[in-house]
Design a protein around this nucleic acid. Structure first.
Length: 259
DNA sequence: ATGTCAATAATGTATTGA
């Protein structure tokens, strides 16, 4: 089962790019972030025509997440538990059942800039809630993965120019510490289980020719529970998608799971 | 700070968020 996470930066602006990608890359499951659409406005039909089940958790104007799956989705949960006052649509979970059940968590972690400030406080608190959710899922001992735009540069080697991110919410020590706390629950960062070294990126800013200069950062990740890590067969970044016609500023990251 | 982009409230362009 091939599963991709892809921050598409707007489903309406990206629909042609996204459909061409689906037809070519043929993911079994796609975890999408930044759909920037309410649920009623999400263009379900072209995805359903291609055999995908569509589950969305959107809001007006920004944020929003969705799961597309060729395997039926069960037990859909919208929103990250832990704060009933949080109105931002950044989290959706569902289970796919192959030979085994696999819980999929699709997340769009807050950017957090400018830091310090209320947006950064929200980011760190959101990461505490994500860790609590991971603890609950671990206790259930069901294989799960958490995939999405984490807005976290885990290490200096995950940025082409780490010096320019020193005071950024994506790379501040407190941000990276929260990410490490998540990993330290016993989760496997899929890409780093398969690839070492610098030069691997999943995001290039639209500004200042970042793509042409390969000035990228690696901020889209999969974290796998121990049971899910045993099922992982491969993980890779689809760099070329960033150079497609009318691209997102992110590129897909993939895991292949022996479900 | 920015060689950019997308959505919004509104019909031309500033604001927000990234």
């Amino acid at each position: 089962m091939k599963i991709a996470t892809f921050n598409i930066n707007g489903v309406k602006a990206r629909i042609e790019t996204l459909l061409a990608w689906l037809d070519e890359a043929q993911p079994d499951v796609a975890l999408l972030q930044e759909i920037k659409s309410v649920d009623e406005g999400f263009p379900r039909e072209p995805f359903e025509e291609r055999g995908y089940s569509v589950e969305t958790h959107g809001q007006k104007g920004f944020n929003g997440v969705a799961i597309l799956s060729k395997v039926p989705l069960e037990d859909v949960m919208r929103g990250l538990p832990g704060d009933d006052t949080d109105e931002q649509a950044r989290y959706i979970e569902a289970t796919v059942v192959g030979e085994r059940a696999l819980r999929l968590c699709c997340l769009y972690l807050p950017n957090g800039n400018p830091a310090p400030g209320p947006k950064y406080d929200y980011k760190l608190a959101w990461m505490d809630r994500l860790r609590a959710r991971a603890q609950d899922l671990l206790a259930a001992e069901e294989p799960f993965l958490m995939g999405g735009d984490y807005n976290i540069i885990p290490q200096a080697e995950d940025a082409a120019k780490p010096e320019s991110w020193q005071t950024d919410a994506l790379h501040l020590p407190a941000s990276r510490e929260k990410f490490r706390l998540l990993e330290n629950l016993g989760l496997t960062e899929a890409f780093r289980a398969r690839h070492a070294g610098p030069g691997h990126y999943s995001f290039w800013d639209y500004q200042a020719g970042a793509w042409d200069r390969n000035n990228g950062i690696r901020i889209d990740h999969f974290l796998l529970s121990p049971e899910a890590a045993d099922m992982m067969e491969d993980c890779w970044i689809e760099t070329a998608q960033r150079g497609s016609t009318k691209p997102s500023d992110h590129t897909p990251v993939w895991v292949e799971m022996g479900v």
